Simulated assay, not measured.
Amino acid sequence: MSYIKVEDVSRHFVRADGTSFQALDHVNLEVRQGEFICLLGPSGCGKSTLLNILAGFEGTSEGDVYIDGQEVKKPSPKYVTIFQNYGLLPWRTVLKNVELGLEEQDVPRDEREKIARHYLEVVGLQDFADSHPAELSGGMQQRVAIARALAVDPEIIFMDEPFAALDALTRMKLQDEVSAICREQHKTIIFVTHDIDEAVVLADRIVVMTPNPGHIKTVIPVDLHGRRDRTSPDFWDIREKIFECFSLKPEDKTEYYI
């Protein structure tokens, strides 16, 4: 049974000069509960637009989106979105940033502190509870944002290129951590990326999108038998399939972005 259902969704925008631009063209997609889905494609393919529609931040021009049988019309407290810029409040400590969503849910003070400290431990930042965001590296700040998202126990986490601004080694570490955490927590994840290796590391299925206008070209299942080893033959086989989708030749590329 589908948990998220995208039915024939198109999205048009009107430019300042009055001309129309089609960001999405008749997109159809079904997602099962607990799946980790990566929306992969180059800039302009509509992947962030699709994420915003799923999260309820934007409407459709045509078609409908359903989550757990309910049509998506606006954002829901059952879902959270993590962006590139972390969204942390600089005047609040790490602990208080993680507590933010719990405050909005009117969780009692003692209980929300207990929950927040638990999720700081999950992301390995229990020793930085009293620090402020400016005292943390970019990777650590993103881990705080992930802890804050997990603390409210959302049904779905939407992520819009959350690691794009990080250095390569930090990005790889966070990819592994997020993959492990989200699978342990059994969350449904929709993750936007333009990084092919990142998609293979994270996803249960990769939704390959192409532009002009944005549509789904194919959906590639990622069966790595529970292992996310970047050096394994299975990893490289899936990676090569994606390169073929975009008519790229891996041997000619030193960077694996699209």
Rank of each mutant, 00 (worst) to 15 (best):
S2W: 15
I4P: 02
K5Y: 13
V6I: 14
V6C: 10
V9F: 07
R11W: 12
R15S: 04
R15P: 02
G18T: 11
S20Y: 00
A23N: 09
L24Y: 01
L24W: 04
H26D: 08
H26E: 09
V27W: 01
Q33V: 02
Q33M: 10
G34C: 11
G34H: 12
C38S: 15
S48Y: 03
T49R: 01
L51E: 04
N52S: 13
L54P: 13
K74Q: 12
V80S: 07
I82S: 06
Q84E: 03
G87W: 07
G87D: 12
P90C: 11
W91D: 07
R92H: 11
E99G: 12
E103F: 07
P108G: 04
R109I: 09
D110P: 07
E111A: 15
R112E: 15
E113C: 11
I115P: 07
A116P: 08
G124K: 07
D127H: 12
F128R: 14
G138C: 15
G139Y: 01
M140Y: 09
V144K: 03
P154A: 12
M159A: 14
E161L: 05
F163R: 06
L166P: 11
D167K: 11
T170I: 14
M172H: 07
D176M: 08
D176T: 09
Q185F: 11
H186L: 14
I189A: 06
I189T: 03
I196Q: 08
E198M: 02
A199S: 15
D204L: 06
V207D: 00
V207S: 04
V208F: 09
T210N: 03
G214K: 02
I216F: 10
I216Y: 06
P221C: 10
P221E: 09
P221M: 03
D223F: 00
D229T: 09
D234Y: 04
F235L: 11
W236V: 00
D237R: 14
E244Y: 01
S247R: 11
P250T: 01
P250V: 00
T254L: 04
Y257E: 09
Y257N: 06
